[in-house]
């Protein structure tokens, strides 16, 4: 096995968070969570149901694009994944623009289903490979979907964790803040403090453990059958990850 890639560490970290669930859905532009969900399904012996948006073969929904959302509203989806051009310390995510939204400095595709699924899916795992003061900010420029809500707002769902290219954070719902859970290989607490634009808790201090690196068996799955399956939706991702010599 050649060296472990950051993406593979993220895939394994997310897959561990899906253990014991019954139905996980994966949205647009989510090759890392998609691979993680497929890995978790493999490890579950097939008991985990995975719905991949954008997949053409073997569809899991038959009532059109709305079914994912209706399914989530009924509590039939246990986990979902959201990224963000910006993510802030209260787990607000921005998928729209940088600067004034009417005259943006940068414009991204848009909010997709985030403003709905973030409220309704119990375990929303945030992911962003770029871990820098540019992506993890004190306050997002545009709230596609808020991390927390007032007590009277119907919200069975919300943020569960944030997985980046450097570390894993848990989201502490009570304190409305992220708490550092584990550091990827070669990262230090000082690195994370320097590269994170928002304040976070560090309950384990210097004793913060390392993120578990996928072992040979998991890497063979990720690079073999999982890679083949994810290629249908993300050919470029699969080529970059698995075809490099």
């Amino acid at each position: 096995m050649s060296g472990v890639r950051t993406e593979e560490i993220m895939i394994a970290a997310i897959a561990r968070m899906l253990s014991g669930l019954s139905h996980v859905a994966v949205g647009s532009a989510s090759p890392i969570p998609g691979s993680a969900a497929l890995l978790a399904r493999k490890l579950s012996g097939g008991s985990l149901r995975v719905s991949l948006l954008g997949r053409i073969s073997n569809p899991t929904f038959t009532d059109g694009a709305r079914e994912l959302f209706d399914c989530a509203a009924q509590g039939r989806i246990d986990a979902f994944f959201l990224g963000g051009a910006q993510i802030d310390g209260q787990a607000n995510i921005n998928l729209v623009s940088i600067g004034d939204p009417d005259r943006p400095k940068a414009r991204f595709p848009g909010s997709f289903g985030s403003a709905y699924l973030y409220f309704l899916v119990p375990r929303v795992i945030l992911f962003r490979q770029e871990h820098s003061p540019r992506s993890l900010v004190p306050k997002v420029d545009y709230i596609s979907a808020p991390g927390v809500s007032e007590p009277n707002v119907y919200r069975p769902g919300g943020p569960y964790a944030l997985v980046t290219g450097r570390c894993v954070f848990d989201f502490d719902k009570k304190n409305r803040r992220f708490a550092l859970k584990s550091l990827h290989p070669d990262e230090t607490l000082e690195d994370i403090e320097r590269e994170t634009g928002f304040e976070f808790d560090c309950p384990q201090g210097k004793a913060t453990p390392g993120t578990e690196v996928p072992d040979t068996e998991w890497l063979e799955l990720i690079r073999g059958p999982i890679g083949d399956e994810i290629r249908e939706i993300y050919p470029d991702f699969a080529a970059k990850m698995f075809d490099a010599t």
Partner: peptide
């Protein structure tokens, strides 16, 4: 009517 959305800048705008 639709669930979710409240607190998003989508609604605010």
């Amino acid at each position: 009517p639709l669930r979710g959305l409240i607190g998003s800048d989508i609604v605010a705008r």
